[in-house]
Amino acid sequence: MTRKTRRLWLVGGCMLGFGTATILTLQAFSTDIVFFMAPSQILAHPPAPNRTIRLGGMVVAGSLKETHEAGKPPSVSFLVTDGQDAIPVRFTGVLPDLFREGQSVVALGEMRPGGAFIASEVLAKHDETYMPKEVAEALRKSGRWDPRFGKPPSASSWDDMTVAPSRGS
């Protein structure tokens, strides 16, 4: 075994060991690394009261209610769901531009005994789909997609749907 081969094995071995150590560490801390918890996770393992947590999920269509009181910033309430459970969220403050029904959001706040989530901050989480307005409009008109109920269909099907919406499949 030449010196170079030995060094190659040494570097390879160190990389392997270091990589394994990193994977194990990340595994151990994976519950701390997640940015938010889904409603079903929160309901399954209720956090301690007054502990600040992040709740993430989709705003349920038709659940958004705004209340305006004189002299106070507008307050909103809506349901956040992960498809299994839903948690009512109340928030007073400025919502991000992308906030809408059907959008994924991450809310920072705490659970109240009544089962409601009082948010101090609401962030919008947009998905990985990018499309021009016309495509979104065409998809909506063709009846294949309603933005209030989640993600649009896959991009490879956009042409079929927009060019020949009546063709069917």
Binding site: D127, E128, V135, S154, A155, S156, W158
Partner: peptide, 8 residues
């Protein structure tokens, strides 16, 4: 497949 319109 990319989840993005070709124009982008």
């Amino acid at each position: 497949a990319p989840t993005m319109s070709f124009s982008m």
